[in-house]
Design a protein around this nucleic acid. Structure first.
Length: 136
DNA sequence: GTTCTAACA
DNA sequence: TGTTAGTA
């Protein structure tokens, strides 16, 4: 269960998630309004996304590209689980880590995340994140 | 400089 | 969805 916390650990601000997913801030916030994702918040009300959130966004993105609308996605995707909802917000700690998190470290985290042994989801996520982490 | 909410071309 | 206004 150590992996659970790692995936639900809120680490990145919307700017990084934009690069990771290739979605606009508008879209990301819009999907949150429709409860497709429930990112954590810092004490200053800034969103903090976890790997889980990024995965969900990538899944949403792929569905959108297939022509599915929000209503359709809501039916296909499981509602946000309770664990991923609260197993997070180490606000102070996360904010500190966020400052230290940059290119090199982000790549390391992404690689570590992508290498995890997960048959189903891993493949899709890897395909879409590879863009980001193979460049620069 | 970045992110947030709200609102409208 | 894009984009802009006014903040924090």
């Amino acid at each position: 269960m150590g992996d659970e916390i790692r995936r639900n650990m809120a680490l990145f601000p919307i700017g990084i998630v934009m690069k990771l997913t290739d979605l606009t801030a508008r879209q990301i916030r819009y999907y949150e309004q429709h409860e497709l994702i429930v990112p954590a918040r810092t004490s200053g009300n800034q969103r903090l996304f976890s790997f889980n959130d990024v995965e969900r966004l990538l899944e949403i993105k792929s569905l959108i590209e297939k022509g599915v609308n929000i209503a359709g996605i809501k039916q296909v995707m499981n509602p946000v689980s309770k664990e991923s909802e609260d197993a997070t917000v180490v606000s102070e700690l996360s904010e500190v880590k966020r400052r230290e998190l940059s290119d090199a470290q982000l790549h390391r985290l992404l690689k570590q995340q992508l290498i995890e042994k997960r048959p189903g989801k891993a493949s899709m996520i890897q395909g879409q994140l590879s863009r980001f982490y193979n460049k620069k």
